[in-house]
Structures are given as structure tokens and as C-alpha cells.
């Protein structure tokens, strides 16, 4: 290859670049000089075949030519006002175009609530227990200290499959099954579907969800129940809320209480959600009745326990201000997709 002055090549090429008026001829110059078979490229390749002592100088010189050309080509290209294939102009990059979304799963809004409840109580040391939705009257009533002639046993209120077989009306049978299966201490929650013999309307459904909790051990007191529930409210709502424990009645607990929290919508000022009271009922609870403990073979003189139960449907409706429970079981995509990422 003939000796060619690098500087001359550069000078001539720069002039030529300056003279171009369109991108096509600019690209032709780039290919002629810097392309894979281009002139400058060839000189750079040839450096390795030069005598050893000439290589550094030649290499530096031709690299300088290449760098100069690249800079000039880029500047001219920008000056000609249109982006090339490899270097789009930032101004014309339209980031507002929609992204290509991968398929995305969407948890049901009710399950988002349940998942959160479960997560909180797991972190407080509870395990998850389950049991059948088709239950015996023994587990659903008798073992829960509900007397034989109690109206709740009536087939008016519950769905029966056979005289002693019904759809569970609460999650408490799971507490009994869990205690029967093991010795204390027991600390479990049981989320699941329950049934009541109600027609569908805005606030009733023949099936809905419940989550109950149970802790039986030596030295478990009402104070523990209150403390645990305060911690739950703090974690679930992410802040301190006013809490009010009220006396109540459940056959399987004694004392029995209900817990109200100050309305999260109006912050206790009174609104339609809390029916102007400033309080919203969120769960029932109490100390496990000694008859229930005796029934599973625990000694109420040695152990004591607390239990609580709440309605995830109701909590979901409160959190998201859903006016009608039927939305939860209809699965209208326009409804479900409103709660993406709510958890």
C-alpha cells in the first residue's frame, strides 16, 4: 500500500463533508472512508504490517484521522437536520407512547384484603388453619356452646344438607378442629368462606368471607386481646386510630366484646359510612368460653384464650367505599381492575 499522508486525507475529507448537502451523500462518504472496506479502515488495518518501530506513530495518526472524521460526520449530520439510523435525536423521541405491558395478574380485591390480614397476623405469630365448608352441627354449634334450642341453629338461618350437616355459618368450627388436633398453646387464624341463609341485596350475600383468630395458652388475658387488636389496627390501617371496645354477646366467648374504630372516612366526625356515629364496627371478640375449652379437652383452670372474628367483605367495602356486596361476587372486569395494586 502506497504511503499516504494522513493529514491530507483528513483535510480533503473534511472539505468534502462540509460540502455535502444531503444525508445520502454523507453516508456514502462515511462508507468510503470508515466503512468495513473503507480507506481509513484499511490504513488502520495496515498498521500491524508496518515495521515495529513505525507502528505507534502510524497508528496514532490514522486513529486521529478516524476520530476527526467521525466528529465531522456527526456534526454535519446534525446540521443537515435529520437523525440518522443509529443516533436518534432526543427531541423526536416520543416517550409518551404507551409501553408494551406484559400480561399482568390481578388479585381479586377481596383477596387483597385477606392477604393483608393474613400477612399481618402471620407476622404476629399466628399460623393459618382451615377446615371444611360443609360442617357438622357438632362443630358449627354444639362445640361452640350454642344450646340445642338456640335460634341460630334454626334452618331458617343456615343452609342444611342433612339434619346434622350444614354450610358453616362462621369460621369458629376451624378453631375447634385445631384445638382437638393439638395441645395448647395454639395460635391460629382461619380465613374462609361462610354461609348464611340470606337473599342477595346491597349488604347481604348468602356467602361471604370471615377471618377468625384464636390464641390459647397459659396466662392469656383480655389485656392481651386488646393489645394484639390494637397492634393489628395500627398495622392494617397504617396509623393510630381511635378504638372502642363494647360489651356484646356470643355464646362461645365470655366476656364478649365488639371493637369499633373511629371512622376512617370522616375521622370520627360523622358521615354516611359511619351513620353519623363516628365509629365503625370491625370485629367481634372475647375470651374463649370455658365450656368450649372443656369440650376440646383443655382444662380452663390451666389455660385461657381469646378469639376474634372479622368480615373481610365488610372491611373491603369500607376501605374502598364499595356500596354493594354483589360487586364482590360478580367479577365484572371493570370493577376488579379498579383495585390493581391496592393490596
Amino acid at each position: 500500500m502506497a504511503q499516504v499522508e494522513p493529514d491530507r486525507v483528513l483535510t480533503e475529507a473534511l472539505a468534502e463533508i462540509e460540502a455535502t448537502s444531503d444525508l445520502t451523500s454523507l453516508e456514502a462518504i462515511r462508507v468510503r472512508l470508515l466503512g468495513r472496506k473503507g480507506e481509513v479502515t484499511a490504513h488502520l488495518r495496515a498498521v500491524s504490517s508496518l515495521p515495529k518501530d513505525e507502528r505507534p506513530a502510524a497508528g496514532q495518526a490514522w486513529n486521529r484521522v478516524r476520530g476527526g472524521l467521525e466528529g465531522a460526520l456527526e456534526a454535519r449530520e446534525a446540521a443537515l437536520g435529520s437523525p440518522g439510523a443509529d443516533t436518534p435525536s432526543d427531541d423526536d423521541f416520543d416517550f409518551s407512547l404507551p409501553g408494551r405491558r406484559p400480561p399482568e395478574g390481578l388479585p381479586h380485591v377481596l383477596m387483597q384484603t385477606l392477604d393483608r390480614l393474613v400477612e399481618i397476623f402471620r407476622s404476629l405469630g399466628f399460623s393459618v388453619a382451615d377446615g371444611p365448608e360443609v360442617e357438622t352441627t357438632h362443630y358449627n354449634f354444639t362445640a361452640l356452646n350454642i344450646p340445642e334450642d338456640h335460634p341460630t341453629r334454626d334452618d331458617h338461618d343456615s343452609f342444611f344438607l342433612a339434619p346434622d350437616l350444614l354450610l358453616r355459618t362462621q369460621m369458629s368450627p376451624v378453631q375447634i378442629r385445631t384445638m382437638e388436633a393439638q395441645e395448647p398453646p395454639v395460635r391460629v387464624i382461619s380465613p374462609g368462606r361462610v354461609y348464611r341463609r340470606d337473599h342477595f341485596d346491597a349488604s347481604h350475600s348468602p356467602f361471604f368471607f370471615q377471618m377468625e383468630g384464636l390464641y390459647v395458652d397459659t396466662d392469656v388475658t383480655l389485656g392481651d386481646l386488646k393489645g394484639t387488636l390494637r397492634e393489628f389496627v395500627r398495622r392494617f390501617f397504617g396509623k393510630e386510630l381511635g378504638m372502642r371496645f363494647r360489651g356484646s354477646y356470643f355464646p362461645f366467648t365470655e366476656p364478649s366484646l365488639e371493637l369499633d374504630i373511629s371512622c376512617t372516612v370522616c375521622e370520627g366526625q360523622g358521615c354516611a359510612v359511619c351513620k353519623q356515629t363516628g365509629w365503625v364496627e370491625i370485629l367481634g371478640c372475647g375470651m374463649v368460653h370455658p365450656n368450649v375449652l372443656r369440650g376440646v379437652g383443655y382444662d380452663p383452670e390451666v389455660v385461657s384464650g381469646y378469639a376474634f372474628g372479622m368480615g373481610p367483605d365488610r372491611i373491603t367495602m369500607l376501605r374502598h367505599r364499595i356500596p354493594d356486596i354483589r360487586h364482590l361476587y360478580e367479577n365484572d372486569l371493570r370493577f376488579l381492575s379498579q383495585f390493581r395494586g391496592a393490596s
Partner: peptide, 15 residues
């Protein structure tokens, strides 16, 4: 798994 595969979760009447 089913959520990660891009499916929408439903809860339907069991009756």
C-alpha cells in the same frame, strides 16, 4: 403462580 402468569383472580358463587 396463576397471578404471575397474568391471570385475573375471581371469586364466584359456590351455590
Amino acid at each position: 403462580l396463576l397471578l404471575s402468569l397474568g391471570l385475573v383472580e375471581t371469586i364466584t358463587p359456590s351455590l
